[in-house]
Design a binder for these strands. Sequence first.
DNA 1: CGGTGTCATGACATCGGTGTCATTGCGTGC
DNA 2: GCACGCAATGACACCGATGTCATGACACCG
Lengths: 363, 363
Amino acid sequence: MATIYDVAKRAGVSPKTVSRVLNGDAPVSARTKKAVTEAMDALGYVPSHAARSIKSNKSGLIGLITGAISNADEVATPAGLPELFIVQGAQAVIEHSQKTLLISDTGGRLDRVPDLIRTFQEHRVEGLLYIADYHKPLDLALPGHDIPKVLVNCFDDLGTPAVVPDDEGGQYALTKEVIAKGHRRIAYLTLAPAMEATKLRLRGFKRAVAEAGIAFDADLVQPTDLFGSPGEHQLIWDALDKFFSGDTPPTAICCGNDRLAMAVYGILRRRGIAVPEEVSVVGYDDHRLISETLYPALTTAELPYSAMGARAAQLLLQILSGGAAAPENRVRIGGEVKRRASLVAPEIQNTKKIISFKGRTET
Amino acid sequence: MATIYDVAKRAGVSPKTVSRVLNGDAPVSARTKKAVTEAMDALGYVPSHAARSIKSNKSGLIGLITGAISNADEVATPAGLPELFIVQGAQAVIEHSQKTLLISDTGGRLDRVPDLIRTFQEHRVEGLLYIADYHKPLDLALPGHDIPKVLVNCFDDLGTPAVVPDDEGGQYALTKEVIAKGHRRIAYLTLAPAMEATKLRLRGFKRAVAEAGIAFDADLVQPTDLFGSPGEHQLIWDALDKFFSGDTPPTAICCGNDRLAMAVYGILRRRGIAVPEEVSVVGYDDHRLISETLYPALTTAELPYSAMGARAAQLLLQILSGGAAAPENRVRIGGEVKRRASLVAPEIQNTKKIISFKGRTET
DNA sequence: CGGTGTCATGACATCGGTGTCATTGCGTGC
DNA sequence: GCACGCAATGACACCGATGTCATGACACCG
């Protein structure tokens, strides 16, 4: 690879002058500039990042640690793949900041994190984004005390800046939406009770129900945690069985995430219960691959991963530029309720169970 | 950040000796080694990658270009998210090679690729993996002639090494599986006809059908291309309508991908046709989020993205180490047929349409 | 006991850029 | 006509590592 010396020799100037043309930080005559530019083109010269950063002591790199790439085939992980949207959001912001994102993957193994951070340190990253696969307390002590960090989708109790989803607010808004349609008997198939998201969302669910003057019925809340395990479908089956064997079955079912809703669709079909004609179903996440493709399309609460990534990146850049020192160290990002065909008013349920195949119109 | 000089001063040795301890490339007395190690720990010293690479003229970096991260919410893209599994496969191999993967994202915009490659050149990447979002001819001329490259999920006509899925073989094997169950009337909802995958898979489908002595019925093949568009469900609905309004409706439906199969499940349910009791359904991709979660679970052909990524990375590393110059420049990777509940023999169809809700056992 | 080989270590140059300071040439004001 | 200022450029040191070569201290051999 050509160096600045090669360019200088070819253009008949000193290396320093080539440097000036590159950076435009000092006056260079038009003639000289032209000669240098031509020499650079002829040689295919590209400046060496390494040489620059060694002198300036600035790498222009932002490290990002995620398990998303390796978790991608881990159906067992509750949130699963969408974590990548966080990466996407961060990438979009970093891209506009003259910095380069260095993405590393844990390979799903937390014990690799220290190695990854070590590699980042070798590259002298200026800041670090740590992305958890789902909303939870940080599950390890991050080394690299001197690197500014922003946590995403997780949080610690040391005051490290963190960006998390507003799970309570999201489930609250979604439940309000269900209630607004007229539902009073609302079942809730939650994710694992120990999960942060489950705790927060259940709080939002209860708040919405209470505000509507509906008595909370614990029998209508069932955890279905064995995600991706062979017994999962059976667990959901049993939970639905409980709901529908009671005297007053629910007219709407909230699901812990869209994936769960997808399984519920299939099991309800086998059970002979039509969605949304006999029961409305809503999810959580707005995993569009699921929510938009399911038939009928799924009403769900958006898990604002992309916005979280973007916000975290902004926060980090702000910290790096010496900006306002963490005003609040945990930022909660809210998402929208996505209204689709799976949620309808209970009054119109049971009125159009027979749908003609032909002549049907798309809603 | 501490330098090798700081460490040397603290340990009372020369910088070169510290270097020797770091690299273990020359004998150092045990006493000295201990002093140096302690100094490094005390100062939190981490060697500078930039300084190393400037001297050795080796960056140890492999560039990877993908649109996966940004495409992640693009339901409209046929293959969509799974492209990430390619990244995962590559990552896993690179990780074991003492190299660091530099991942960049096109943001879905091909015109950004030259910029990304320029950034890679500044970092002096030693090789480049270019990953397309679905199997297709390379859609742009890649700059950076002097960088060894491997294409993944795409190919050009310049002889650049490429790793692609064996679409024909995959559909052939899957169709053979359907036929082996006893099906003779097999419908096929394809992806867009112009797609590479569609052409190849259709070839595999026809080959399997022909080998079984089944006459190819063009009416049973319907393209359903408007992916993710609002009219998509309608298009599938119409195609299914055609299939089932004939005299001898199909007993099995092959779908262009798992997402399509998911939509088919919902529409068949609305139509009152049970899967797999009345019709078997198979997909393509083995997008596990879908194939394992759908109820009943989906029989499908694996799109071996992870293996493709791994193979491509191996190939690139081999080229970098001056290994065998591209023996064959297009490597086709085959995937397995994943047998799940959605495909059953036609004889047993229609025999168990009524399933009791309770007492059911998981298969 | 002197020559020789090995071990352990350091001095110095070098990689590809950039910061600092010096130098040259030319127009301008008095 | 001379001092001065500014534009344009170059010489040189330096960033943090490592390669090359030299050096001093021993041990071993004849």
